[in-house]
Amino acid sequence: MTVASEPPSHKGKRPSRLFKNWMAKLASLPMILTALVVFVGGTAWTVTYSFTSSRMLPKTSWVGFDQYERLWNTDRWIISIKNLGIYGICSMILTLVIGFSLAACLDRKIRFESAFRSIFLYPFALSFVVTGLVWQWILNPDFGLQNVVRGWGWESFTFNPLNDPNTVIYGLLIAGLWQGTGLIMCIMLAGLRGIDEDIWKAARVDGIGTVKTYVMVIIPMMRPVFITALVLIASGIIKLYDLVVAQTGGGPGLSSEVPAKYVIEYMFRAQNLGQGFAASTMMLCSVVIILIPWAYLEFGGKKRG
């Protein structure tokens, strides 16, 4: 081992940077190759074949932007994008607000904190498929929430979001929030616990109120925690698929379709790989458009400063 760890001796020259820590680099080679071949290679392949008229099997018959033209002229795709937009914005804001509020409440040193923490985190242990089915039943007007409330005597109570094309996306949102906020709460709570007690003491000495301390002092200090939460929520939104399949199947009609479902259905059910690839490339584009300016601000800014 001592031989291996000795630095390679090149007379008069500094060792090339490439061979510095070569053992570590060798060990990470499989991971590097996997990343390059599977992620970068797979992405490049998908984008390339989105410009072909591939049906069940990939073929190199180039059709230019035809698949994209068809994609953006398809009602179902437009509906999918709108749904993802509504779901995304609402889910992002509400998850952060509810997650932080719950964490702040638990942070006030209440009794049975760990019990509450488990209860709030518990839904996260369930898969989206189970979540979707459970909420499909809860929101079913004939034996779910509406039926229960009517049973209490409020006969005119109507709560049937899943069967109304205009509200079905909010039915999904409820299930998504129920499932996802627990995890965000835990991350926020960890962040709050990481704040030095002295900050609170200083705030108290200065006579700043609790809420104001949270908003003006604590939240800015928790920036890294918020970024972690944001990335987790955003990736969950983009890949929203299984919840929709389990809870509504995209219905009624097309009113709760999402882009990921479009990709899967056109690739496999319609046996139209080209169309599916075009849709998945658009999903990639939307992620890149959001991600690059953010990464630039977040990491590029720090290097300069």
Binding site: D75, R76, I79, G253
Partner: peptide, 8 residues
């Protein structure tokens, strides 16, 4: 897809 949109 068209049918789903139309009927609902």
């Amino acid at each position: 897809d068209l049918m789903a949109q139309f009927w609902s």
